[in-house]
């Protein structure tokens, strides 16, 4: 749920889609690290507003896959189109894609030498040339939205892990992305901080932003995801709505993964 203090969500989101096709379209994506075949042909279409959770054992290529979507990793074969823009390694194409794709990292990667507010304002000021007053207002609105408006003038080191990760989410939102990528956003958090981050992510999903989340939080996947994707050995092995995936997994490896992750 959106907190009552936040502005109406539609004011904070980018304008709606121009086309009705998928906002993320991946065809036959292949990647090698030297001789190691990390991604063996990924096909995926994500609709506007969809929340997709990607899970799978470690080393299955799920992080590598979403890092390919904004070219933090390069790939050797396949075609990726994001928001109508084909992903090549050309600077203009990459810049356009990174403008419409926000990312949240496992280790937060906040800028430790800047205050929370400066962390949020830097990219809009430099990339979008947003005037300072406007950037500040936007930053404060998003900080309130992730429920840490009071921490605006602190440095990241002074915040708890959960607060830092919520700042990181707000930082990504300040660029008004159409798609948000989450790379194991709660894996580096103490258990009692996981909930506050997942709640914010759930609120975002409810607001209609397109999300791709790599996570081991199966409760979150069941509650929030529109679709769950299971990856293993660089391939998508199984996908479906959370109800179907959790209650009746088809593939033996998915069943094994779920029994291990849900039994502890």
């Amino acid at each position: 749920m959106i907190s009552p203090t936040a502005q109406p969500s539609t004011a904070l989101l980018s304008p709606g889609p121009l086309t009705t096709g998928p906002i993320v379209s991946v065809q036959d994506l292949k990647k090698w690290y030297g001789p190691f075949h990390a991604l063996k042909g990924i096909d995926l279409d994500v609709a506007v507003g969809e929340t997709v959770v990607i899970c799978g054992p470690s080393g299955s290529g799920k992080s590598t896959f979403i890092r390919c979507l904004n070219l933090l990793e390069d790939f050797q074969e396949g075609r990726v189109v994001i928001d109508g823009q084909p992903l090549t390694r050309e600077p203009a194409a990459v810049a356009a894609i990174r403008r419409s794709v926000g990312m949240v990292f496992q280790q937060f990667n906040l800028f430790p030498h800047l205050t929370v507010l400066e962390n949020l304002m830097l990219a809009p000021r430099l990339v979008h040339k947003t005037p300072e007053q406007e950037a500040r207002a936007t930053a404060l609105a998003y900080l309130n939205r992730v429920h840490i408006g009071a921490q605006a003038d602190k440095y990241p080191d002074q915040l708890s892990g959960g607060q830092q990760q919520r700042v990181a989410i707000a930082r990504a939102l300040c660029m008004r992305p159409r798609i948000l990528l989450f790379d194991e956003p709660t894996s580096a958090l103490d258990p009692e901080m996981v909930k506050e981050v997942l709640e914010v992510m759930g609120e975002l999903a409810g607001d209609g932003i397109t999300m791709l989340c790599v996570t081991h939080e199966m409760g979150f996947a069941r509650r929030v995801a529109d679709r769950v994707i299971f990856m293993d050995h660089g391939q998508i092995v199984e996908q479906g709505p959370p109800g179907q995936f959790f209650d009746a997994p088809q593939h033996p490896r998915a069943r094994e993964f779920l029994s291990q992750i849900l039994s502890h």
Binding site: L72, R99, M103, F105, Q107, L122, L126
Partner: peptide, 27 residues
């Protein structure tokens, strides 16, 4: 400076010059 600082700057769309002058060198 950890790789994550470069990655966060790139993901936010900062140019290489801004990444260096605003993020990496000050740290």
């Amino acid at each position: 400076i950890p790789k994550g600082q470069w990655e966060a700057s790139r993901a936010l769309g900062l140019t290489p010059w801004h990444t260096l002058s605003r993020i990496i060198l000050p740290q």
